[in-house]
Amino acid sequence: MAKFEVGVIGLGKFGFYLAKSLVNLGHNVVGLDNKSDRIKRAQDILTQVYEADATDKGALSQLGFADLNHVIISVGHSMEASILIALYLKELGAKDIWCKAISDEHEKVLLKIGVDHVIFPERFAAEQLARSLVVPGLIDYLPMGKGVLLKEIIVSSKWEGKTLRELDLTNQYGVQAIAIKTQEKGEYTFVPKADQKLKKGDILAIVGKEESFKELSP
């Protein structure tokens, strides 16, 4: 996986944990906030941390945020501040800007000024939780199109001894097995072989449209 230089502006709960996750994935993260307690919490975790006012265009320029691969703006509930920061980053030539929004109107303004990606963390988390509650085995609800799911299917006696080639899931149900977890290994192996025989209790990670899973019975 390529290593990125990522800037996170606003180190509140969302910004801090996002930045920490990016570091854990091996990327360099530059954090920026105007509150000393947040800087103190992040300084031993992130690659670099600066205490400054992100609505100061000169500070953004001096700290080199426009030169990073990605910049995420997460400044809490201040619509005005996030819009101003995004505008300055665009003027400075930032390559890829992500910004947390708090309303549909906020999103419209951000897109108008050229923000590349708008994030609604609470909305996304709520949708994921709702899907997990009502769809057993759901791993993820993917933003690849309407109703696309990534779901775990446990192999029962009906599929035991058969291969993925014999099951022909793509043509029969319109879904695709992308990984398998056997009881022997206990972890996923991706891109399973078409001629691998399935055993009862094996777990398949399958991607497809939500309606396709209604016909699927392992």
Rank of each mutant, 00 (worst) to 15 (best):
I9G: 02
G58R: 15
K158Q: 13
K108C: 00
I97M: 07
K162P: 00
G7F: 02
V135T: 14
L138I: 10
A177T: 11
E107V: 01
A59M: 14
Y173T: 12
S217A: 09
R38Y: 06
L87G: 13
A66T: 00
V134Q: 05
I39D: 02
K151A: 13
D116V: 07
K214F: 07
K95R: 10
Q176C: 13
D37A: 04
T55D: 10
N28I: 02
D37M: 03
S156A: 07
G7W: 00
S157T: 06
L142E: 01
G201M: 06
I178E: 07
I9L: 11
W98A: 03
K95E: 06
S212E: 14
L84E: 06
D96T: 07
A179D: 08
D56N: 15
F124K: 10
N34S: 15
S21P: 05
G93H: 06
N34M: 15
V155D: 05
F213C: 10
S157N: 09
L169W: 01
K199Q: 13
K193Y: 01
E160M: 01
A81P: 11
L129M: 14
Y50R: 09
G58H: 14
S217C: 08
L164R: 05
W98Y: 14
E211F: 11
K209I: 12
L63F: 08
V8P: 04
N171F: 02
I45S: 08
E184F: 14
S21G: 11
L60C: 08
I180H: 01
L149S: 14
E210P: 11
G114D: 09
Y141H: 08
S61V: 01
